[in-house]
């Protein structure tokens, strides 16, 4: 037994292919048998992935879900930022550049609005819970944008570690919600063409959330959503500690 787990840890990435293959097969079976294909197999697979991440986190107390279990460390490589981004870029192959140019204006508006609205919601919630200083409001607002914007904003402004932790939790929750929720809200918000996908990517911003959510909805939408979402975190980190902090400072006065 020990020998086998050692071999599996040594061949981490290869074992990850097997694990994910099994999860995919199981998910498509569940999707066909239990929902008659209504809930897409990839949506089921992402939900199972998140459950596994939760179990891994409970078991190890670590921050990388299932990948913190030594035997499953290869999941960390397979689903890490490097291969994820390579796969996202590859989905752009065959995309019609005219579609992107046509949706350009909508994408830019989506980005600005998405960052601003997320900060506003996060800052209002922070204030409602007694964090009425501009630094904490901007940090939690940044967390409501993405789990990277929050800590970057907080670190730049000198927020307390408690507030930074809250902002990370808010951002992580958003990523998980977008991954699970996208296929369910897609019919309600007309998320079925390249342009609405570009608007969606810009408004939601969380790359992992959008990447997972659109994969579970319709894989053909992935490149359009990913295209705008990839600008979001950078722009959020740019606006958070500057424009948005100054606006909050002007409103709160402290």
């Amino acid at each position: 037994m020990e020998m086998i787990t050692e071999i599996l840890s040594k061949n981490g990435l290869v074992f990850a292919f097997v694990v994910v293959g099994v999860v995919m097969w199981l998910s498509y079976q569940l999707s066909d048998r239990l929902s008659a294909g209504r809930l897409h197999g990839s949506a089921v697979a992402i939900i199972i992935g998140l459950v596994l991440a939760w179990l891994g986190g409970i078991a190890t107390g670590g921050s990388k879900g299932l990948a913190d279990v030594p035997m499953f460390a290869g999941i960390g490589l397979m689903g890490g930022a490097m291969l994820r981004d390579l796969a996202i870029v590859s989905t752009a192959y065959g995309v019609d550049i005219r579609e992107i140019r046509k949706a350009g204006a909508a994408g830019v508006v989506a980005l600005a609005l998405g960052i601003f609205v997320s900060f506003a919601v996060g800052a209002l919630v922070a204030a409602a819970f007694g964090y009425t200083d501009a630094v904490s409001m901007a940090t939690i607002g940044g967390g409501a944008a993405t789990y990277i914007v929050g800590p970057v904003t907080g670190t730049a402004l000198g927020a307390s570690s408690e507030v930074i932790a809250l902002s990370v939790a808010a951002g992580l929750l958003k990523a998980v919600l977008v991954m699970i929720g996208t296929p369910f809200v897609a019919p309600l918000i007309g998320l079925n063409n390249p342009k609405s996908a570009m608007a969606y990517g810009g408004l939601m911003g969380t790359t992992s959330g959008v990447a997972g959510g659109l994969a579970a909805t319709d894989k053909r939408l992935v490149p359009y959503g990913a295209m705008t979402a990839t600008f979001y975190t950078g722009l959020g980190c740019l606006m958070g500690p500057s424009v948005i902090y100054l606006m909050l400072l002007a409103i709160t006065g402290s």
């Binding site: 697979a45 991440a53 409970i58 397979m78």
Partner: peptide
């Protein structure tokens, strides 16, 4: 391989901290 990679990505999210 995009969707399988996204599933692996989901499996390493910090879901415990999110909740």
């Amino acid at each position: 391989m995009y969707i399988p990679i996204v599933v692996a990505m989901a499996a390493q999210q910090n879901v415990v901290a999110a909740l």
